[in-house]
Amino acid sequence: MKNKLILVVFLITFKVGAQVSDLKHISFKKVNKNVRFHKGESLKNILTLTHKLTDELQTKVEKFHVIYLWICKNIDYDYETYRRINLKRETYKYNSEKFIKWNIDYRKTIFKQLLESKKTVFTEYAYLLQKMDFIAGIECMLINRYGRNSSIIIDEINYPNHT
């Protein structure tokens, strides 16, 4: 029993130490400089923008971080679209299949809107991050789960509402 405890403590210590030391060689100064330098750039050519943001960076951590920060600082939240989606959620409250079908079709429209207006909601932030990560050579997986806010009764949700 004592040997198992020592092994667990060793593994936890090793794991934590490895995670901290892995980030020591990363230059977040370059990341922040790139985000500032490319502030306000258009999304009309995501390929070019992604290369501009990530070209000088060495690690996937730096590349992911620059893309994430650029999105956070340059894409606004679109409350009108949020209201539209919530109205559809209410309409299809008892028919999650119809809502999912509507949502799949609507995503095509909302992504085009994002590229033009640089405003979006919910999942589109994640889709943009995934698309830019793919261009930068970073594997990125979207995971749909349940988000909670003041108007959601978690026990009554029939479909994932957050990515």
Rank of each mutant, 00 (worst) to 15 (best):
K2H: 09
K2N: 15
N3C: 15
K4I: 03
K4T: 12
K4S: 02
I6K: 06
L7H: 02
V8A: 06
F10L: 03
I12F: 15
F14E: 15
F14T: 02
V16T: 13
V16L: 15
D22R: 03
D22W: 13
L23W: 04
I26A: 08
S27E: 09
F28H: 07
K29N: 13
K29Q: 11
N34M: 07
R36W: 10
K39Q: 12
G40H: 05
G40I: 01
K44Q: 14
N45Q: 03
N45M: 11
I46M: 06
I46V: 00
T48W: 11
T48E: 03
T50D: 04
K52S: 07
L53A: 00
T54A: 10
T54Y: 05
D55M: 05
E56H: 14
E56R: 14
K60H: 10
V61Q: 07
E62F: 07
E62D: 08
K63W: 03
K63Y: 03
V66Y: 05
I67A: 05
I67H: 03
Y68I: 06
Y68K: 11
Y68S: 15
L69D: 07
W70M: 00
W70C: 00
I71L: 12
C72N: 09
K73L: 07
D76V: 04
Y79L: 11
T81I: 03
T81R: 09
T81D: 04
R83V: 06
N86C: 06
K88H: 04
R89A: 08
K93M: 13
N95W: 15
S96F: 14
S96N: 15
E97Q: 13
E97Y: 14
F99M: 01
W102H: 09
N103L: 05
N103A: 08
N103W: 06
Y106F: 05
R107P: 00
K108N: 07
I110P: 04
L115Q: 05
K118H: 07
V121W: 00
T123I: 01
E124V: 06
E124R: 09
E124W: 00
Y125R: 02
A126R: 06
A126C: 14
Y127S: 01
L128H: 00
L128N: 02
L128S: 07
Q130K: 04
Q130T: 08
K131A: 02
K131V: 02
D133S: 04
F134D: 12
I135T: 07
I135A: 02
A136V: 08
M141Q: 08
L142D: 12
I143Y: 11
N144M: 08
Y146R: 02
Y146K: 00
N149T: 05
N149Q: 01
N149V: 00
S151Y: 15
I153C: 08
D155G: 03
N158L: 09
N158Y: 08
P160H: 05
P160N: 06
P160F: 01
N161M: 05
T163P: 03
